[in-house]
Simulated assay, not measured.
Amino acid sequence: MTRQAPAGGAEAPDAFDNVIHAPQRLRICAMLDAVNQIEFSLVQERLDVSASVLSKHVSVLMDAGYVEQRKAVRDTRQRVWLELTATGRAAYRGHVAALRKIVDQAPE
């Protein structure tokens, strides 16, 4: 796992995103937002889900253009690495901002 430097410049628009909102996809995006890239198996381990469940969620995020995957050989085995695209990072941060607005507007 490699750390992602904070993005400079423009803030993501506050936009609730139904693709990201599903709990496991939200967790995937949160993990990916904190790094440049992360190995599929580590995400699977941290989320405590099967490879097929994670693969389905990643496919939805990839179809939306939010996640890219890269395959590489490491230790003589093929590994899959995941990363947020710029579009995915902006969508995730916008979604989080929209959720914060909802929480901040809740009556005390």
Rank of each mutant, 00 (worst) to 15 (best):
residue 2 T to S: 14
residue 18 N to I: 01
residue 67 V to P: 04
residue 26 L to K: 15
residue 99 L to V: 05
residue 63 D to S: 14
residue 3 R to E: 14
residue 63 D to V: 01
residue 101 K to Y: 05
residue 22 A to R: 11
residue 21 H to N: 13
residue 96 V to K: 07
residue 108 E to R: 15
residue 10 A to Y: 08
residue 96 V to T: 13
residue 85 T to E: 02
residue 67 V to H: 06
residue 103 V to K: 08
residue 46 R to W: 13
residue 29 C to V: 01
residue 103 V to N: 05
residue 4 Q to F: 01
residue 34 A to W: 06
residue 100 R to M: 07
residue 60 V to F: 08
residue 82 L to G: 07
residue 41 S to Q: 07
residue 72 A to C: 00
residue 21 H to W: 10
residue 6 P to H: 09
residue 96 V to A: 13
residue 28 I to E: 05
residue 54 L to E: 03
residue 107 P to V: 10
residue 81 W to G: 07
residue 85 T to C: 03
residue 86 A to S: 14
residue 61 L to F: 09
residue 90 A to V: 06
residue 61 L to H: 10
residue 95 H to W: 04
residue 90 A to D: 06
residue 69 Q to F: 12
residue 32 L to E: 00
residue 60 V to L: 07
residue 8 G to N: 08
residue 78 Q to F: 10
residue 77 R to E: 13
residue 78 Q to S: 11
residue 29 C to N: 01
residue 32 L to F: 03
residue 48 D to T: 08
residue 21 H to V: 02
residue 36 N to T: 11
residue 57 H to A: 02
residue 72 A to P: 00
residue 103 V to P: 00
residue 61 L to V: 06
residue 59 S to F: 01
residue 57 H to G: 04
residue 52 S to Q: 12
residue 78 Q to D: 13
residue 64 A to I: 00
residue 52 S to H: 09
residue 32 L to D: 00
residue 108 E to T: 15
residue 107 P to H: 06
residue 9 G to P: 09
residue 61 L to P: 07
residue 5 A to C: 01
residue 85 T to S: 04
residue 27 R to Y: 06
residue 95 H to F: 02
residue 84 L to V: 05
residue 89 R to D: 07
residue 55 S to V: 03
residue 25 R to G: 03
residue 94 G to K: 04
residue 23 P to L: 08
residue 7 A to K: 09
residue 67 V to E: 02
residue 59 S to D: 06
residue 99 L to R: 11
residue 67 V to W: 02
residue 71 K to D: 15
residue 39 E to W: 08
residue 22 A to T: 09
residue 5 A to L: 08
residue 43 V to L: 04
residue 45 E to I: 10
residue 70 R to I: 12
residue 24 Q to I: 12
residue 107 P to D: 07
residue 63 D to N: 14
residue 73 V to H: 08
residue 51 A to G: 07
residue 36 N to K: 09
residue 88 G to V: 00
residue 46 R to P: 03
residue 13 P to I: 05
residue 35 V to C: 12
residue 6 P to C: 10
residue 5 A to R: 05
residue 108 E to L: 15
residue 97 A to H: 09
residue 106 A to Q: 13
residue 58 V to P: 10
residue 26 L to E: 13
residue 38 I to F: 05
residue 99 L to T: 03
residue 74 R to M: 09
residue 85 T to H: 03
residue 90 A to Y: 01
residue 35 V to G: 04
residue 92 Y to F: 15
residue 81 W to A: 12
residue 38 I to C: 10
residue 65 G to N: 04
residue 92 Y to M: 08
residue 15 A to R: 15
residue 28 I to G: 07
residue 25 R to F: 05
residue 30 A to K: 12
residue 9 G to Q: 07
residue 102 I to Y: 11
residue 26 L to N: 15
residue 52 S to R: 13
residue 11 E to L: 13
residue 39 E to Q: 14
residue 86 A to V: 14
residue 42 L to G: 03
residue 9 G to K: 06
residue 18 N to V: 04
residue 82 L to R: 12
residue 22 A to W: 05
